[in-house]
Design a protein around this nucleic acid. Structure first.
Lengths: 214, 214
DNA sequence: TAGATTGTTAATCGATTAACAATC
DNA sequence: TAGATTGTTAATCGATTAACAATC
């Protein structure tokens, strides 16, 4: 079910780091940035950077590189990050609160404007200035605001149950920070952000590095 | 620099979800789990699950599947998750605090036992029962405890500076939650956990899904 | 001009999927 | 036994890297 093939997934995952590099160069007053420079900064191959940037449609100048302002615009537009997008956080625990307070999202157009939690003692309070509502109010809030994106930060055992409620409320995109995969109808996209898979990579890298030296 | 080839990286990233599935089946009182069942739960192909599990060395029984207790043990041992590992959090802001309070890590053997921050008003306080120290105390603490793993949750602009301090203090593994890639000598492994690349994927999936219906 | 860089086309590499014999 | 499942070997697919002409 629900397996949407995202073409060039690895390239898309790398785009945000190119965007950051471009913005930083812009801040320094540069006009152009070359794939060679980006590659050196990020420890990639220049050819990979060129291939990745090609999908955004931006075009570079031989000997100079990519013009920064069009480059930033091309990446933002390709990712749909050039327009404001409001989102909900569902599960106002530690991780949910941290994401609400995370300043980096606004630079991608992402604004968290409400939180929801099953815990009634949190309801009515604010977290980093954002109001917390009861889960029961979800559907009504989604309908009245037209929001279609939700960040899921509940305990993993309730992930599917809450995801079902999100779908029922009309949410169309779920950023899932629980370890449990959730299933949704095919008109609702899910991005799983499994921290434990990153930790598996770190553990493995450490083991291999260690063994290599031994 | 520092580009350590982790063989079978995609397989390693999937192992934690197999581990979770196996543990859940064990809780339900099952004795075996088949690749078919795991694949259905996680929306993978059975052949992929079998290939992935093969690297851990566990062997299954035709018609039954993989015996749960050896399966859990094999994955944990392969990832080095069968022994306790202590870690530091550096940057005790929102995200750092959330990771300190995240209950899931202990099931992978990961225990956060201290936090560090440049902000002197935090020093001496506790976050979820974990003490916060000044950055200046880093080296001394690393040396006295023998800890070699750090979780980096500082603002992205100070990522490299703080990473350098971690290396200098003797840290050998850095789990980097900032958007900035950090460079380290080759005896220090880094795992970059770039949230914005996940958000790029979600944005793209949503756009493609939307366009397909239009 | 010389040389660095882009962008395209082709080659390589690695991961996923298919096929199927072995097994319980 | 029949049939589901494992595990291995081969085929396919897609991503990365190489080669190189075009360009400024």
């Amino acid at each position: 079910v629900n397996k949407l093939k995202v073409s060039f997934a690895p390239s898309i995952r790398r785009l945000p780091s190119y965007l950051l590099a471009a913005r930083q160069a812009l801040e320094l007053g540069d006009e152009y940035i070359s794939a060679t420079i980006i590659a050196r900064d990020l420890d990639f191959e220049p050819i990979q950077v060129r291939k990745d940037l090609a999908i955004t449609g931006v075009s570079g100048k031989p000997k100079r590189g990519y013009p920064l302002i069009p480059l930033v615009a091309a990446i933002e537009s390709f990712l749909d990050w050039d327009q404001r997008r409001d989102a909900l956080v569902v599960g106002a625990g530690n991780l949910g609160s941290a994401l609400i307070g995370f300043p980096g999202f606004t630079s991608h157009g992402l604004h968290i404007i409400a939180a929801f939690d099953a815990d009634k003692t949190l309801v009515g309070k604010q977290i980093h200035g954002i109001p917390v509502f009861a889960l029961e109010e979800l559907k009504q809030k989604v309908e009245s605001t037209g929001i279609y994106m939700a960040i899921l930060t509940v305990p993993h055992k309730s992930a599917q149950i809450v995801a079902d409620k999100l779908v029922e409320a009309g949410i169309k995109a779920i950023w899932n920070f629980t370890n449990n995969k959730v299933k949704t109808p095919k008109d609702v996209v899910v991005q799983n952000e499994d921290l434990s898979s990153g930790y598996a990579m770190l553990s493995m890298k450490f083991r291999l590095n260690h063994e290599r030296q031994a």
